[in-house]
Nucleic acid binder design. Sequence first.
DNA 1: AATTCATAAAAGTAATACTATTATATTTGC
DNA 2: GCAAATATAATAGTATTACTTTTATGAATT
Lengths: 224, 224
Amino acid sequence: MERLLQTIKIAINEKIYLKDPESSDLGKRIIEHSILMIDDMGFESFTFKKLGIKIGSNESSIYRYFENKHKLLVYLTSWYWGWLEYQLVFATNSISDPKEKLTQAINIVTRTIVEDNAYSHINEVLLNKIVINESSKSFLTKEVDEENKDGYFVIYKRMVTRLEEMINAVNAKYIYPSSLASSILEGSLHQHFLKDHFQTLTNCDEENTPSKFMLDLVFKTIDQ
Amino acid sequence: MERLLQTIKIAINEKIYLKDPESSDLGKRIIEHSILMIDDMGFESFTFKKLGIKIGSNESSIYRYFENKHKLLVYLTSWYWGWLEYQLVFATNSISDPKEKLTQAINIVTRTIVEDNAYSHINEVLLNKIVINESSKSFLTKEVDEENKDGYFVIYKRMVTRLEEMINAVNAKYIYPSSLASSILEGSLHQHFLKDHFQTLTNCDEENTPSKFMLDLVFKTIDQ
DNA sequence: AATTCATAAAAGTAATACTATTATATTTGC
DNA sequence: GCAAATATAATAGTATTACTTTTATGAATT
């Protein structure tokens, strides 16, 4: 993406980490290799001990950055949504026609991520895969209400609100704008998952992308 | 529900368990109390050791029924979908008008579950809560393809196919019937979750139910 | 040169997720 | 009615996880 992004830091709620991983070389290596390892072995098998061995550091040093692996997952997904939000705003800001704006927004948030080298230590393609496969686990917990109160999910919620406002701008009479907005995000992640693992449960593939499915669904729903 | 259900056993793929929990009193207590405990403490905190203590049995005895707690979760969700499938077929079988049939189907699969005493040891209300809060964890794993090949998710897939066929019967020209069908199931679980934890991300509540949202979405999408 | 700070190393703890072995109680088949 | 088979319970043990604590070391700062 734009060079501009290289100078912009995605602001993550400070409660999620103990020490900002962007503030040191070790912190960046934690982020870089946790993405590679979670993608490779899945969140359940991933441990701080294994990560420590991989980055030639000690388990206890990683614990100075994140209380536990759940918080690391919350951090990674927050970063992803922050990164995507930036692209959403950047790409839609100058569009005045509400339909065109919403179309572009849906394209951005539902597309398959391709290489982006704005942040050298973060592989956005793999991070997108992690969001598809693991991010539900960040909020499907008994602690969700408490963590929500502490602002762990603000960026995600802001994304939904942005989409909701764009839906409203197209059709102010539609009575489920936030349900539709949240469905665009979760639904497209789910269709991406299905196309990789349950092809019989989706019509989405390389040609009929989740983006096309969602655009068709959204505009038929609100545009009448 | 109907008494009929009391005599019908929901058939679960035998690979999911080591010994059929329906075949013994201990097995039924395992199912009964695992539902109560997973609802109460969440899947992460739930262990076979704690379950053993609760039912006055031993951890090792539970391991003779299920290899691990993941398989127990797959069993519980499969049972739920089998139970819901039965209600879906029962309630829509005699309807000939395609639109009315699909309407009824969506109502059944998206509604809030209320008490049902057909199976004395299974609390369907709590099981529905578990499906909302935990069932994604049954397929968001590194083993999903292997388990899918072994038929762990057949009942769920059959449900999606049934909905897909009903969508086709209303509009054979719609090109995303299975994506829409899978979105009805996952999307409604997600809206139920949001209404309990993230009210700002949904318009659904007791009045504007997920069923109404889904009916509106589906018919606007395919009915034109 | 002294202090502080970040990281590393090592050791320890409680719990988890099992497995294995043996004992006991119950059921069933002849 | 008894032996054999089966189910369950009890006990103990293992490797790993998810941490915490303490101490050491080196690097940067004052």
